[in-house]
Design a protein around this nucleic acid. Structure first.
Lengths: 348, 348
DNA sequence: AATTAGCACTCAATAAGACAGAGTGCTAAC
DNA sequence: GTTAGCACTCTGTCTTATTGAGTGCTAATT
């Protein structure tokens, strides 16, 4: 579609703009990129590229900057999974940071977001597992004082969802233990969202000696499970954005920072895309209008072969996509590894 | 110490600077504050106030701005607990926001920080209970797969601390239940930090049939309790700071935002003061150098009559201390109320 | 003796003009 | 098809002038 020279010119513009953040003109290109033709020729090519939608101008006599289409073209053509020979060194480096054993995945994600932000100088975000889609490993009901019971559910990621439930009548401790075991046996390895269905489909309807007690619990448990929807997102390095010259202007900065501070918007940005290992959303491709000047790269992480969460970076569209994709890939792999090493509480 | 006219002038300067953020001169004071004397007189008074350390100039011919000493004087003289007739309306307003029942105090704090930030247009911070100083209400050990056990501790604030522990040899389920009950009986209503002491002092040394199993657990539990130190802090409205004209300058903004984004610094700022119901730190009074241009107002919240956490707001030193103190007071009271209503799992 | 009018002086912010630098687009020559 | 050359454009920066809000001092007034 683009002949070789046009391609070279386009890459030169992208490359230059990524590092300097300034529009680049034809003469500067001839000076810094060896294309073997004069600036006038470059000028003509650039004019063509502008007509084709790959380049923009900031004003009539300015140099050119890449359009969203140009970045998309760049990413699509110069990134493919083969590029990612897992960078062992970098992976080791990350793992060195993560010395301590993590008791909770949330702490791990928070720390990793911090490291990722520090390493890339962008804003890093991490989405904690969508509880609904993780598998239950253990259910336990515990007696508290009065008529309160504590319900605990442990999932495959070691994440523990717990709640204090108020009942009208007391259930004896022995019964609770019995019911716990029964529930665990019946529901183990189902996801939380399956669980809600199964309960209403009567999976728990067979004969069971504490059935009456169980019946009183079920509506409470279901309700409790339904609000397992709440996802958590960890963001770090929000202020890194201010280092970019495009946000020297405080009003622009305000606009983008308030988006980055808004967890709902972050969650939306992280969930509203395909569940691909690596996903890149450039500018206008973001469904949220407030993010049309930003790009976001996300990678998924897995537990037991299932995608359970995401980690990503957000920044101005002008970013070194290929490098960042590599970095984030390493992070997502590291999370998956760590989940397998530390949190797995299942029959290996 | 200050005669009445000086006091009036000082209050005029503070009042004006709080609302405009601009240095104020003698003529402007005569125009907007009715002091019954000419600008020349005000000028002389202002010069005196400067000598006394209450006012500063930004340059030789600028108007005056209040010094830290002036704010301190203002807060000390015009705030006393009697000012706070609890504003019932505002309290009801806040409680309306908090309709849903909270299962976890952390969620409550996060939401309240958001509301407080929204209401005040400052950065709001909330410190979750210092686990070490809260009382244990329940201890439970649960068997997982293989040699893992799950340990759960519930405290008075409904906050649940849990951990997966790897053991070398399995402990039977019955034994675990027995041990759990024993631990709960022995350690209930002690704080986590007392617990560490008591364990090493041999509180668990009396005869107990599963003593051998217990012995294997104790070092693990102690270690686990010790890192209960990690406090969580929730911050919201960080970007509100950018609305203040003093942070039009991006470098100043960067400086302060990176402080507000740094959870360690926030925790330090929230913990490094007296445990008073209301504490106000103005500029230089903050021990951290990076906060010398900021003020922070904190209020404590209680559970069972014991202070267990704090909520606060951070902003430029130019803030309406009295109003904000009132607001934050209402918030801290609301948290205390909610903790008593929802989370209390003790023998009332 | 305290207050005030008057005046010289200062500093910051703003606006206007000049100018340099990097760029485009077009035309004519190679 | 390429390129040299040139007129033109726009931004950013530098200088200079001007205005406005302020101070501090002195001398006159109450």
């Amino acid at each position: 579609m683009l002949d070789e020279r046009k391609l070279k010119v386009l890459l030169a513009v992208i490359d230059s703009y990524i590092v300097t953040g300034e529009p680049i003109g034809s003469r500067t290109i001839t000076k810094f990129y060896d294309l073997g033709v004069s600036s006038a020729t470059i000028r003509n090519e650039m004019s063509d590229l502008e007509d084709l939608g790959y380049l923009n101008k900031t004003h009539t006599s300015s140099g050119r900057i890449p359009s969203d289409k140009a970045y998309r073209f760049y990413v699509d053509n110069f990134f493919n999974n083969s590029i990612i020979e897992i960078d062992r060194n970098r992976k080791e480096q990350i793992k060195r940071y993560i010395k301590q054993e993590y008791k909770e995945i949330d702490q791990l994600l928070e720390d990793l977001a911090k490291i990722l932000a520090h390493l890339t100088k962008y804003t890093a975000v991490a989405l904690s597992p969508q509880i609904k889609e993780t598998k239950i490993k253990h259910i336990q009901l515990l007696p508290m004082e009065q008529n309160q019971i504590l319900s605990i559910m442990v999932n495959e990621a070691g994440l523990i969802k717990k709640s204090i439930i108020n009942l009208e009548n007391k259930i004896s401790e022995d019964n609770l233990i019995y019911i716990s075991n029964y529930l665990t046996r019946k529901l183990k390895n189902k996801t939380f969202s399956e669980l809600v269905n199964e309960i209403s489909n009567g999976i728990l309807d067979d004969y069971f000696e504490y059935k009456n007690d169980l019946k009183r619990l079920i509506p409470i448990l279901s309700g409790f499970i339904e609000d397992a929807e709440d996802m958590k997102v960890y963001a770090d390095g929000i202020t890194n954005i201010l280092e970019f010259p495009e946000y020297r202007d405080i009003d622009k900065a305000k606009e983008v920072l308030s988006v980055l501070e808004d967890k709902d918007k972050l969650i939306f940005a992280l969930t509203n895309n395909k569940l691909e290992e690596i996903d890149v959303k450039i500018g206008e491709e973001n469904s949220h209008d407030c993010m049309k000047d930003l790009s976001i790269i996300t990678a998924t992480y897995n537990s037991e072969g299932e995608i359970i969460g995401k980690i990503g970076i957000i920044g101005p569209k002008r970013m070194n996509y290929i490098e960042l994709i590599k970095t984030i890939w390493v992070f997502s792999e590291s999370i998956t590894d760590i989940l397998n090493d530390y949190f797995n509480c299942n029959e290996r």
